[in-house]
Design a protein around this nucleic acid. Structure first.
Lengths: 111, 111
DNA sequence: CAAATATACCTTGACAGGCGAGGTATGTTG
DNA sequence: CAACATACCTCGCCTGTCAAGGTATATTTG
């Protein structure tokens, strides 16, 4: 483990929504892309991932449908909704201000 | 409420240690300084604060002693230990890399 | 062809941290 | 003396993470 997951906690939904902003995708692939983007330093645990999908779908941020693969295991694809796009933008703004706040709070003042 | 507390979760310990890097202090005052630094946008809930003190003391990051106030309510002062200083530095480094990682993961790629 | 591996999904139950609600005690101020 | 500010504390709930376990399909390998 390279990164304490409590630091990422609260960003799971944002991360998933961000991946879906680029187009429909399915769970396994989304997680792969997260691993790739972080050079293997981070991944969502499956239980966390699927819990998040349920939560986001319940909240109306995403919708899902089964793919009609002719081969390989079946895939459930997720699609971001308009409401999900709004939520995403909101979460991004919250992250920007939270980031500044944390920076301010965790640094010792010495000028 | 202005900031989702899940975004701060995982930083509580770092925030407290940062405050103690500047010298011994007590709970109530630490929380006040956090409110001031964030222009009232954030504060640690008392239950969260005292839970964190217990946790940090248990972990050997801080030690405590009762102040000998002649007036007003009694205060329990906290002091950061050498181990606490090490932990603080480590947490800062973790935050730096987590920050980059999150930035990478929550932005949609469009160049 | 059987076994192993990769893909792909899912659920359950435990755990940890945040926090609402409630409590204690002291000193000041109207 | 009542109200308020300071200052501490605990209990029990809630939510998100995740280890462990499970299912099903297709491909590779001996």
């Amino acid at each position: 483990m390279s990164i304490a997951s409590d630091l990422i906690r609260g960003h799971t939904d944002t991360i998933i929504l961000a991946r879906l902003m680029g187009g429909d995708n399915y769970g396994y692939e989304i997680n792969k892309s997260i691993q790739q983007k972080t050079d293997g330093k981070y991944e969502l645990k499956e239980a966390t991932l699927y819990t998040a999908f349920r939560r986001l779908e319940q909240a109306g941020c995403i919708s899902s449908y089964w793919g009609n693969e002719r081969t390989g295991a079946r895939r459930r694809y997720y699609s971001i909704t308009d409401s999900g796009r709004d939520t995403y933008e909101k979460l991004i703004r919250e992250w920007q201000s939270a980031k500044e706040m944390i920076n301010k709070l965790i640094e010792t003042e010495e000028d």
